[in-house]
Design a protein around this nucleic acid. Structure first.
Length: 597
RNA sequence: GGUCGCAUAGCUCAGCUGAAUAGAGCAUCUGCCUUCUAAGCAGAGGGUCACAGGUUUGAGUCCUGUUGCGAUCACCA
């Protein structure tokens, strides 16, 4: 049984014995003992004063004595004001370490052990332009959250809903037709998504010119935006697409194909993947029948022009259109349909949408409408709403050319990793392939950690001028610590030193050793907490703390040169475990860690 | 205007269900490589936790209000 559970039960029985009172488990608060005091766990005794009818110190003293007498793992306690600090024996911790020492999956729940299936939708790009830094945050979050949910024993289905249809892609298509001269990724050497994105920009430039021509003639701006020939043509193209025009469809397929080839490259470098890819062109008509059914049941309302709405004013929201007067769908309609389809097709317990916080309202409405329509599963929809990535001058604007391109950023990171590694002379004995692999690992590690260490829901700032750090609270720091440990372990193996185990229960642990071993045992809780909160940041901050703690231990103690063989084996063992956890935690963030760096 | 979110060191960020003197990193300054990887370790300075009330034995954390910033409220997605 978990030591904290044991202690909790002991506190309950202690209160019963000492004060003839029944305490609620929820009032028992064990927390980590602060560094400045001696102890492993601290019980806050204030909640029990009413039962003991004594002052905090006395109550803590009595409870401490009770605990000490009733659990052999407790070696001592001390009382500071209303805080009871409890210290467990070194041998307890060492024994615990032994138990997990050969368990490579320590902290992770067995695959599918929870019996729950959770679908995570993420990425969901538009196909008219390349991915940028904002998409990177989405992709890294979606992937990491999926991995964390798996580590919590859930069956996870990662899906991507590609927005492959609509006016935006028609703009690129039209511009390509007009000004492309048959350009292809092959003929230009451009990545497919970049090529298509260039024509999207071209469209916007030409469109603006037309608007200006009109406004110069005295047309007001709003009207000019409507009247401009290009936008008319783009809309006509969308109509033809919907009508199934063969030529338009052919072009659409071709250009989307280029984009997918480009995306695949970016996804592969980022290391994200999907179990299923949905395309809006195949799902955009879903949901219509559900809406009509809702109308029949009187849950939804129809206006005079025939449009169908959900009236959410009673819930403090507005009215929301679900079917236009011409009977066509809006985005919300599709989401209603796809959610329904997914829950029935995959027997989902939960459905998580990784989508930016600009769509908070959308998901609030989606859930509410589904609940009103009577779907019980709607309660199990959640929106992992993440904050925007901003630049020092504010939001990224594609029109102002301030977007940070995903591929460029990744390439920069890898290049910085190369430069830094060369300067530090770290790769002198690496083969070319090994070095290339390492640069990629470090560059991406820096980027991923930088993004994921921030609480998802918060807006984060990225300053392109100050490239992402490689020192301090960073991915490379964590990677370095892993490499450092592995290096010691390799040397131990070469020297034929046994890692495990027997006999070292009686050694005395130093403060650094105690701190490290305690931190190691927090890993399972960290995974659970990260899963409950959909927060990779919790994992990131933990593995940083662990790496930092290890480096202190490493600095103060020698391992291979330690004379006492029991101490040496213990240190080797705790080192191995630390490396395992760093590797495991990093993997949950989609980060790889090197054996050498 | 309505709704929602955010505000912690010069900068970037931690701070889980309230609890001890609010923590890291970067930047600045100072030490530590003939010793298992110095992408490391140690130390110094740096805070009215936006502001004002309230609840509580106890508030950065909960409630109310104010200010500032952001998002959103389309027959857009």
């Amino acid at each position: 049984m978990n030591i904290l559970t044991t202690l909790e039960e002991l506190v309950l029985s202690g209160i019963d014995t000492l004060y003839s009172a029944k305490a609620d488990v929820k009032t028992i608060q064990f927390q980590k003992t602060r560094k400045e005091f001696e102890g492993d766990f601290t019980l806050v005794v204030f909640p029990f004063l009413k039962m003991s009818k004594k002052n905090p110190e006395q109550t803590a003293e009595e409870l401490g004595t009770y605990l000490l007498n009733n659990n052999k793992n407790i070696v001592s306690f001390n009382v500071v004001k209303g805080f009871l600090n409890i210290k467990l024996s070194d041998s307890y911790w060492i024994n615990e370490l032994k138990i997990i020492s050969t368990d490579k999956l320590f902290g992770l729940k067995p695959a599918n052990s929870s019996g729950k299936s959770i679908m995570v939708e993420y990425s969901s790009p538009n196909t008219n332009k390349p991915l940028h830094l904002g998409h990177i945050r989405n992709n890294l979050l979606g992937y990491a959250v999926s991995e964390i949910l798996k580590a919590n024993g859930h069956n996870v289905i990662k899906v991507n809903l590609v927005n492959d249809r609509g006016i935006h892609i028609c703009k690129s298509m039209l511009a390509w037709q007009k000004w492309g001269n048959g350009a292809t990724p092959e003929s230009t050497g451009l990545k497919g998504d970049k090529l298509v994105g260039d024509y999207y920009v071209k469209f916007d430039q030409e469109y603006k010119k037309q608007i200006k021509e009109l406004t110069d003639k005295g047309v007001d701006e709003k009207q000019a935006k409507e009247d401009a020939e290009l936008i008319q043509e783009a809309r006509e193209m969308l109509r033809q697409w919907e009508a199934g025009n063969i030529e338009v469809n052919q072009l659409w397929k071709t250009m989307n194909g280029w984009v997918y080839d480009g995306f695949d490259v970016t996804y592969k470098v980022l290391g994200v993947d999907f179990d299923k890819i949905y395309y809006e062109s195949e799902t955009y008509k879903l949901g219509k029948s559900i809406v009509l059914e809702g109308l029949e049941k009187g849950i939804l309302i129809q206006k005079e022009d025939g449009s169908i709405w959900a009236d959410l004013t009673a819930d403090g929201l507005d009215q929301k259109i679900l079917l236009r007067s011409d009977g066509t769908s809006v985005y919300m309609t599709q989401d209603i349909g796809t959610a329904h389809q997914r829950f029935s097709e995959f027997k989902l317990n939960d459905l998580v949408y990784v989508v930016g916080n600009e769509q908070n309202y959308h998901f609030q409405v989606l859930k509410l409408v589904l609940i009103k329509l009577g779907y019980n599963w709607a309660e199990h929809i959640s929106h992992l709403s993440y904050g925007m990535v901003e630049l020092p001058e504010g939001k990224m604007k594609s029109r102002e050319g301030t977007v940070v391109d995903a591929d460029d950023l990744i390439a920069d990171m890898i290049d910085t990793a190369r430069q830094t590694s060369e300067e530090l002379g770290k790769i002198n004995d690496f083969t070319g392939d090994e070095a290339t692999k390492l640069f990629k690992m470090i560059g991406l590690g820096a980027l991923k950690y930088f993004i994921l260490k921030v609480d998802p829901k918060k807006t984060m700032l990225f300053n392109p001028q100050e490239s992402i750090d490689f020192n301090g609270n960073t991915g490379p720091f964590v990677q370095y610590t892993h490499a450092r440990i592995r290096s010691v372990i390799r040397k131990a193996e070469e020297a034929g030193i046994e890692q495990y185990i027997v006999g070292e229960e009686n050694i005395k642990l130093s403060e650094k050793e105690q701190n490290l071993i305690k931190l190691v045992f927090e890993y399972p809780n960290i995974i659970a907490e990260a899963g409950n909160n959909f927060s990779p940041a919790i994992i990131a901050n933990y593995i940083y703390e662990l790496a930092k703690e290890y480096n202190q231990f490493y600095h103060d103690h020698s391992i291979l040169k330690e004379d006492n063989i029991d101490i040496q084996k213990f240190r080797l063992s705790i080192s191995t475990k630390t490396a395992d956890i760093i590797k495991s935690g990093a993997a949950l963030l989609g980060m790889e860690v090197p054996e050498k760096m």
